[in-house]
Every structure is written in C-alpha cells, then in structure tokens.
Design a protein around this nucleic acid. Structure first.
Lengths: 212, 212
DNA sequence: ACCGTCCTTCTACAGGTGTAGAAGGCGATA
DNA sequence: TATCGCCTTCTACACCTGTAGAAGGACGGT
C-alpha cells in the first residue's frame, strides 16, 4: 500500500533532497515532509548513511523502471529500431528526458545530488547501474548501426545525452531552452538527439534522408 | 601575496567542498583545511551564505581566466578557427576539459556542487556567466561554419560538451573512460568533440575529408 | 611615548542534528 | 484473558554549526 513506511519515507527524502539539497537532508526534515511524527525516520533508518543508501536504491529502482518501460515496447530488439528509424528513437529518448526534467524533476535533482555525494562515498556507486544499462543499450544500437567503434561512441553518446538533461535542469539551459514539459522542449531535444545518434553512428543527414 | 587571507580561505573552501561536499562546508572545516586558527573563516565570512558566495565568485573568476587563456590565443577571430580546422579546435577544447578533470578536479567538483546549490538559491546563478561565455562562443563558431540554426545548435553543443566532462568526472565514465590527465583521455575527448562540432555545424566526416 | 585603528584570535552560546533507548500501544497465540 | 513480540512514538543527550562579540596585539600618526 501507499502506507508502506519505507516507501513513504524514501520518497519524502527524495523531495527533501531536491528542495533543500544534501545539507537539508536530515531525519527530522524527512519526518516533517512526510507528515509523520518526529523520530519516525530515525527509527527506520538509524543512521544517516542508511537513509542515503535507501534513497539511492529507490532512485536506481525508479530509473530502471522508467528505462524498461520506455525503451523496450518499441520493439523486442532495440538495436533494430535504431537502424530503421533514428528520428523515432530520438523522439523516444527526448520524451524520457523531458519527463525527467518536468514530472520527475525532484527525482532527477536528487539523483544528481547523490551522484555528487558518491564522489566521497564510493559505496553509493550503485546508482551507476542505471548508467550502465543505457550505456550497454547505446553501444548495441550503434554497433547495429555500423559504427566503427561502438563502445567508444556509445559512451560518448550517453554522456552527451546526460549533458542535455543536466544543462536544462540545472545549468544555463534551464533559462534559454524551452520550458520542460512542453512539446517545444521535446521537439528541441529530439533535434539534438537525432543529430547525436546520426553523428555517433557514423551516418549523416544527407545519407539518411532517403529513409524518410 | 599568497598570504592574502581571502584567497587562501576561498581556495581552502573549494577544497573542502570538493572533498566533503556541501554538507562538509563549515567555517571550522575551512579553518582546519587552511591551517589557520579556528574562527578565522567565521571572522572573514560572518555568515555561511557569504562564504558560499565568495566561493562562487572565485570559481567564476578562475573558470573565465581558463577560458580566456585557452580559446583566444589560437586566433583573434575564434569563429574563423572553427571553420578552418575543426580537429585543432576539438583538441583545444579536449585539453581544457582534461585539465578541468585532472589538475583542476577540485575546482570542477566544487563548481558542480555550487551549480546544484544554485537550484535552491537563485542568487548564486552568477556562475552561469561562464556558461554564457562558452555558449556565445559556440554559437558564433557554428554560425560561421554555416549551421542552419546556430543558436540552437550552439546550446546543444555546450550541453553535450559539459556532459562529457561531467560523465568522466562523476558519472559512469569515470571508470570506463581513460583516466584524466593522460594523452589517451585527451585523444578520446578530441574524437568525441570533433564529432560533435561536425555534427552541429552540419558538416560531416566525408564532406570534411578534403580539408585535411 | 601615546593613542586610535585595524587585523587577528579566542570564547560564548543558542539552536540544530545524529543516534540510542525508553515508553506506549496493538494484535496474535496459547 | 494473560503474555509476548513488534511497530510506533517520544525523549534524552552528546556533539556540531552558525554567529556574535570580547580580548589581544601590531602599527602608523602625532
């Protein structure tokens, strides 16, 4: 149920993390945010480290669920999809990014906060499973598309896509780009991602134009 | 002199920020890091907000100095450079990124921490001057290179380049990519950035091959 | 030599925070 | 019904942090 204390608390913790930052993430702040009596979070997560680890696990789960839901239904073999219709793939990724910066904004902010935190606490690197999943997918896609060095190109691709997300969520792009949650934002992202896909696959607009 | 208290303290604060994160940034921690008696930081920056703002200003200054030193000497008109030799431009940017993730690692980590902090404290958005500078430069470069929509493509370009930096510094790329500070890393980055430049400029490897 | 000014260092203290454990309540089992 | 174990809530307390102000000292002007 939604009264599962662990889920309620970790979700509240994610909200706190997004709004107050790592510094504001305290047991009492999570209690307040969840509307539960003081001491609750402290009882469920005796130490602060335990609380953060729970948040990290939750984030990883939610992200993986999003990825699984988005990428797979397009076709059983996602590698084939890339080859046949780059623009559709780009639009799919753009939709996911747009969701992560509008609906799931808190979650994404919390993820970046944890990612930064993982710099000093290596045991938090569990989050990277999410990165590894999309990394593997990108490599497969580009390999199927005939890229010369799929591993390298795939890594570059996910780094760039994550850069688009970060820039719009936190960086300067947050003001200059179209606002998240709008069709304009998705369209803009689609253009960027399609360009990236073609570039890293070693294909180019002209060569691809016949496919439309 | 190097005994300028303000500079010593803000530099120590940047180190603390990089090593302990925003949560570890306290007056006393900065004192300890700088090897100065307790209370020093508190005397120079009466409030915590003042301390963070000083750090942000310092980061902005240092970054702008790096940018000015790197990009300009290549030629008075940087836009022309892009057109004539994409690979050289890419190598220059790659060198800067490599420096930011090896020599200037602490500074870059601190910058991301502040960027994240600026989410809840809009007055810190001074850092974005740095982003705006490279953004303008990218737009000009791509415009000169004949891109159809230079403003849009320029924004996408800086976002992607920043993604490469972030990924290697903090994300999954920190383990899979060549280690920062090595020629291999610069070479890898150069490949990625050259691909990006060509893609967003609307030029492509084949079309460009005659230029070599 | 005397004084005022500034820089530096120390100390105080009111909150806030992490963590442990006690107290209370509630359903299941015998 | 009495007992036990578990989940929940409350309380305690040592420690850390932000911030203010006092004490100390160097130093140039008169």
């Amino acid at each position: 149920m939604t009264t599962d204390r662990f889920a309620v608390l970790t979700d509240a913790a994610i909200d706190v993390l997004a709004e107050l930052g790592m510094r504001g993430l305290t047991h009492r702040a999570v209690d307040a945010r969840a509307g539960l009596p003081q001491g609750t979070t402290s009882a469920y997560f005796r130490t602060r480290k335990a609380l953060i680890e729970a948040v990290v696990r939750r984030l990883a789960d939610l992200d993986r669920a999003d990825l699984d839901a988005r990428e797979l239904p397009a076709g059983a073999d996602s590698a084939a999809v890339a080859l046949t219709d780059i623009d559709r793939t780009a639009a799919g990724i753009a939709a996911l990014l747009d969701q992560w910066m509008s609906t799931a904004r808190h979650r994404t902010l919390a993820r970046y906060a944890c990612l930064l935190e993982a710099t000093h606490h290596p045991e938090l690197r569990t989050i990277l499973e999410y990165g590894d999943a999309s990394r593997a997918q990108s490599r497969a896609m580009l390999a199927a598309a005939g890229a010369r060095n799929p591993a390298q190109a795939g890594d570059h691709l996910v780094a760039c896509i994550d850069g688009l997300l970060f820039d719009r969520l936190i960086g300067a792009g947050a003001r200059t780009a179209p606002p998240p949650g709008t069709a304009a934002n998705r369209a803009d992202l689609t253009i960027a991602i399609a360009t990236l896909l073609r570039a890293f696959a070693g294909q180019h607009p002209e060569a691809q134009r016949s496919g439309t």
